[in-house]
């Protein structure tokens, strides 16, 4: 298992190298540069050229790339052109928000999706199955930003039950040692702050988790349905095993493999940043940060952010692969 993990981690090197070249060329192929984003209609050819020179963008691309990779090797992703802060600091500040939101969203999707998909798969064509099918299709069909605005309008504006802006009430003064606000509240013993941060997570997590919920429900249903029809399940039932043992040992465990794969992929995607959800709820994570960097042609942020998120994606998928071993002894043996 260790060998497998190391091999997969080593694969990161060519992946990141290739990705870095692609991203580097991609951002430079985008129309416009940071100079016009910074200067707007106040841009003149002279002023734009001066800004390009100030940030080294007037040098040949290969030269810029070599210099960039030299710094990346030292984990230095450069300085954001917009905020003038080191990209690593900016990522460190925003990534906890993304992790917090993604965790809540995936929890929401898993806690509801797996039981719902399971019941639907075990009782095909029942009202639960029909309801889950309609709900899943709706969940996938409603655009996230529309759902976000709807949830916010209903629960924050009209009913006033839940907050809809930011990660915590800005009037609360508390310490944030880790950047994970709920955890910070627990660690510092500031339970009202933790509770407030948790409340701030509800609406964005529901908005963000709806699509994973729909997908997990559908995949679980299909896997349970398929596994339930396997010969070994029928054999187990014929041997007189109790329904709960058949369900737990023979159906659920086997059906979980594709579900875990989907959960892993969805988690990886959610960790890459939820641009729309973060924007609607002013959540301030990686997604909105990357989107704003794209609009302002903040090259160091785009480059550093994409490389960082690629590492996150690969690591999450590695963890998923490792988890197969725990679920399926055959994988462990191979």
């Amino acid at each position: 298992m260790l060998k497998f993990a190391v091999r997969r981690l080593l694969l990161l090197i060519p992946i990141l190298l290739g990705l870095s070249i692609l991203v580097f060329l991609f951002v430079r192929a985008l129309p416009g540069g940071p100079e016009t984003a910074l200067l707007g209609e106040r841009s003149t050819p002279e002023r734009a050229a001066a800004v390009r020179a100030a940030y080294g963008l007037d040098r040949p691309v290969y030269e810029q790339y070599a210099s960039y990779m030299g710094r990346v090797a030292k984990l230095d992703f450069g300085v954001s052109i917009q905020t003038q802060q080191p990209v690593t600091e900016e990522i460190g500040r925003r990534f906890p928000a993304t992790v917090e939101l993604a965790t809540m969203a995936i929890l929401f999707a898993v806690v509801i999706g797996i039981p719902l998909g399971f019941v639907a798969g075990r009782r095909p064509s029942s009202w639960v199955d029909n309801l889950s099918t309609v709900g899943s299709l709706l969940g996938i069909a409603i655009p996230v930003f529309a759902l976000g605005f709807l949830l916010k309008y209903l629960f924050a504006v009209k009913l006033g039950w839940l907050p809809g802006t930011g990660r915590q009430d800005v009037r609360i003064t508390t310490e944030h040692p880790t950047g994970f606000y709920v955890l910070d509240g627990l660690l510092t013993g500031d339970l009202p702050a933790a509770w407030d941060a948790l409340k701030h997570l509800v609406l964005p997590a529901v908005a963000l988790g709806t699509i994973p919920l729909a997908i997990i429900t559908r995949i679980t249903r299909a896997a349970v349905l398929e596994t339930g029809n396997e010969d070994y399940v029928r054999t187990a039932e014929a041997k007189g095993m109790t329904r709960s043992v058949v369900t737990r040992r023979h159906i659920l465990r086997n059906a979980l493999l594709p579900v875990v794969t989907i959960i892993g992929l969805q988690t990886g995607l959610l960790l890459s940043g939820a641009i729309l959800t973060e924007t609607v709820f002013a959540f301030g994570g990686m997604g909105s940060f990357m989107a704003s960097a794209l609009f302002t042609r903040d090259f160091p942020v785009i480059q550093g952010g994409i490389l960082f998120l690629a590492v996150v994606f690969v690591v999450v998928n590695l963890l998923v692969d490792i988890s197969y071993g725990f679920i399926d002894p055959r994988v462990r043996a191979s």
Binding site: Y153, A156, G164, T165, T279, V280, A282, G284
Partner: peptide, 12 residues
């Protein structure tokens, strides 16, 4: 409080 999105500012 930074809220980048216009409609989100209105709802806030």
């Amino acid at each position: 409080k930074p809220i980048a999105d216009g409609p989100a500012r209105r709802q806030a």
